[in-house]
Amino acid sequence: MPSETPQAEVGPTGCPHRSGPHSAKGSLEKGSPEDKEAKEPLWIRPDAPSRCTWQLGRPASESPHHHTAPAKSPKILPDILKKIGDTPMVRINKIGKKFGLKCELLAKCEFFNAGGSVKDRISLRMIEDAERDGTLKPGDTIIEPTSGNTGIGLALAAAVRGYRCIIVMPEKMSSEKVDVLRALGAEIVRTPTNARFDSPESHVGVAWRLKNEIPNSHILDQYRNASNPLAHYDTTADEILQQCDGKLDMLVASVGTGGTITGIARKLKEKCPGCRIIGVDPEGSILAEPEELNQTEQTTYEVEGIGYDFIPTVLDRTVVDKWFKSNDEEAFTFARMLIAQEGLLCGGSAGSTVAVAVKAAQELQEGQRCVVILPDSVRNYMTKFLSDRWMLQKGFLKEEDLTEKKPWWWHLRVQELGLSAPLTVLPTITCGHTIEILREKGFDQAPVVDEAGVILGMVTLGNMLSSLLAGKVQPSDQVGKVIYKQFKQIRLTDTLGRLSHILEMDHFALVV
């Protein structure tokens, strides 16, 4: 994948999101292997301009796509893939009243899908469409860049269908997702969380590099694949309309690839034109409109599966009536509230959605109805927002919020430890010299600072030695090549209790 991002070429006709291997024109390309080798690009942008032909009021008969309808489940399912879809609609009884809503608040519980998330729908649909058009064949390999849930859905379907599955996901995604993927037989590649989507090191860039190296491999490409919004247009939206008897006044959905909100909203605009569509985008993402909503100094966020630093091709923002931004604290607070007060075992993005819903639905009156999409299960986040310690460490809970008995030293300040200034190293000294210094002084790690004293990161003896043994660096290389740029900081005025929580999850903390 090139470091400079080429513009994806656009073909003359058809839909841009065809499933299957992508040609340089962004659509299915038939021909000899030699032709494909000559024409197939190194990668295709996940934010390529959409060429979708959908228009409100256009006859369904003019759609270029294969459409399906929700099917009634048999008493005995032939395999677990038949437990994807037909998820329950559940009334939220307490939270709406707590925040003064007059309307009825309903939750579409997508964590009841077989793999635990709304992404099971698009995973199965992308595979079925690729099999139907002859792209996927027995023994082929599926590769997908994902925040985890699409990966789980694909790995689940691949396990049943017999495909090899490789999932490329950023490091910030939970260990629970990784464990589930491994249990399903998927191979996992992790990428830096802070890598831009168009960087060769991003999950998108690495996935395309693997595709170019592995024979008979395919990126189904949830960011561009029409099967993504079509899955929701054909099934999720129809289920909502049936469950609500066609009567709903507002739908609120958090947005990642945009397939969920695009597919549902398009069908609702056709069948229930008075329904307002509300999009939820986390602070630090750029999906919301108008652009002024996205202006923030924050560039990272903890909530998973929603928000991006690019506009995915499948996201149709014209069908969203209003956007709201959400933050991590309210997302996790509301997710825990949904679990504790409503018994809905949902993930953090569901918290984002409901946090926005109780604001947006203030305009609705008694007798009206708001539906929220709860995308995934708490299963993926047992060591994250479900953990009091994690919430404390991230600053989303305060010590006084917890009532468990603490040891005698818990409320003492870090400054009472009488710490001395640490050994520091410059980023320009060599790895070999740094190892000598650390061994001589008896230290395992040291902060790396520039000549102005600005902290650049941390270097550890173990990481340097393993990097040297693996051949990633040489003793003569500058130590700046092996620094940890993500590390926890703590102030002298913070409590030892807070430091204790940090050290339970990290090997060190830097006192500043």
Results as ranks from 00 to 15, higher is better:
residue 2 P to I: 12
residue 2 P to F: 14
residue 3 S to C: 10
residue 6 P to E: 09
residue 9 E to W: 04
residue 10 V to E: 08
residue 10 V to F: 13
residue 13 T to N: 11
residue 14 G to E: 09
residue 14 G to F: 09
residue 16 P to G: 10
residue 17 H to K: 03
residue 19 S to T: 03
residue 20 G to L: 11
residue 24 A to T: 15
residue 25 K to M: 10
residue 25 K to R: 09
residue 26 G to W: 10
residue 27 S to I: 11
residue 28 L to N: 10
residue 28 L to R: 03
residue 30 K to E: 11
residue 30 K to H: 09
residue 33 P to D: 10
residue 33 P to M: 08
residue 34 E to F: 11
residue 35 D to A: 14
residue 36 K to P: 10
residue 37 E to Q: 13
residue 38 A to W: 03
residue 41 P to G: 08
residue 45 R to D: 10
residue 45 R to S: 14
residue 46 P to F: 03
residue 47 D to A: 08
residue 47 D to Y: 06
residue 48 A to L: 05
residue 49 P to I: 08
residue 50 S to Q: 08
residue 52 C to R: 02
residue 54 W to P: 06
residue 54 W to D: 06
residue 55 Q to G: 11
residue 56 L to V: 12
residue 57 G to R: 08
residue 58 R to C: 07
residue 60 A to D: 02
residue 63 S to A: 15
residue 65 H to E: 01
residue 66 H to F: 11
residue 70 P to Y: 03
residue 73 S to G: 14
residue 75 K to G: 14
residue 75 K to S: 15
residue 77 L to G: 05
residue 78 P to K: 08
residue 80 I to F: 09
residue 81 L to S: 07
residue 82 K to S: 09
residue 82 K to R: 11
residue 88 P to T: 07
residue 91 R to A: 03
residue 92 I to T: 09
residue 92 I to Q: 03
residue 95 I to V: 10
residue 96 G to V: 09
residue 97 K to L: 12
residue 99 F to H: 10
residue 100 G to M: 05
residue 101 L to D: 00
residue 103 C to M: 05
residue 103 C to L: 03
residue 103 C to N: 05
residue 104 E to A: 09
residue 104 E to F: 03
residue 104 E to G: 09
residue 105 L to Q: 01
residue 106 L to I: 12
residue 108 K to Y: 08
residue 110 E to M: 04
residue 111 F to S: 00
residue 113 N to K: 05
residue 113 N to V: 06
residue 114 A to F: 05
residue 114 A to V: 09
residue 116 G to E: 07
residue 116 G to Y: 07
residue 117 S to P: 04
residue 121 R to W: 00
residue 125 R to M: 06
residue 127 I to L: 11
residue 127 I to E: 05
residue 132 R to D: 10
residue 133 D to L: 11
residue 133 D to R: 10
residue 137 K to V: 02
residue 137 K to A: 09
residue 139 G to H: 14
residue 142 I to R: 01
residue 142 I to D: 00
residue 143 I to Y: 06
residue 143 I to A: 01
residue 144 E to F: 03
residue 145 P to I: 02
residue 146 T to S: 04
residue 148 G to R: 00
residue 151 G to M: 00
residue 151 G to N: 03
residue 153 G to E: 03
residue 156 L to R: 00
residue 157 A to N: 08
residue 158 A to W: 01
residue 160 V to G: 08
residue 161 R to D: 05
residue 163 Y to P: 00
residue 164 R to T: 06
residue 164 R to A: 06
residue 165 C to R: 00
residue 165 C to Q: 02
residue 166 I to G: 03
residue 167 I to P: 07
residue 169 M to H: 02
residue 169 M to D: 02
residue 171 E to N: 07
residue 171 E to W: 05
residue 172 K to A: 01
residue 173 M to N: 02
residue 174 S to W: 00
residue 178 V to G: 09
residue 179 D to C: 14
residue 183 A to H: 12
residue 184 L to G: 05
residue 185 G to C: 01
residue 186 A to R: 00
residue 186 A to F: 01
residue 187 E to Y: 03
residue 187 E to S: 09
residue 190 R to W: 05
residue 195 A to W: 05
residue 197 F to V: 03
residue 197 F to T: 07
residue 201 E to L: 09
residue 203 H to M: 07
residue 203 H to C: 05
residue 208 W to P: 12
residue 209 R to Q: 14
residue 210 L to D: 01
residue 210 L to Q: 05
residue 210 L to C: 06
residue 211 K to R: 13
residue 212 N to C: 13
residue 212 N to D: 15
residue 212 N to G: 12
residue 213 E to L: 07
residue 214 I to R: 06
residue 214 I to T: 05
residue 215 P to F: 15
residue 217 S to G: 11
residue 218 H to S: 02
residue 218 H to T: 07
residue 219 I to K: 01
residue 220 L to R: 01
residue 226 A to T: 10
residue 226 A to Q: 09
residue 226 A to S: 11
residue 227 S to E: 10
residue 228 N to Q: 03
residue 228 N to K: 03
residue 231 A to F: 07
residue 234 D to N: 13
residue 235 T to F: 15
residue 236 T to W: 01
residue 236 T to H: 06
residue 239 E to Q: 10
residue 240 I to D: 00
residue 243 Q to S: 06
residue 243 Q to A: 07
residue 249 D to Y: 03
residue 249 D to P: 01
residue 250 M to N: 00
residue 251 L to Q: 03
residue 256 G to Y: 00
residue 258 G to K: 02
residue 259 G to L: 00
residue 260 T to V: 07
residue 261 I to F: 05
residue 262 T to F: 01
residue 263 G to W: 01
residue 263 G to V: 01
residue 264 I to D: 01
residue 268 L to R: 00
residue 269 K to V: 02
residue 270 E to R: 03
residue 270 E to Y: 09
residue 270 E to K: 13
residue 271 K to I: 12
residue 273 P to A: 05
residue 274 G to T: 02
residue 274 G to K: 11
residue 275 C to A: 09
residue 275 C to G: 06
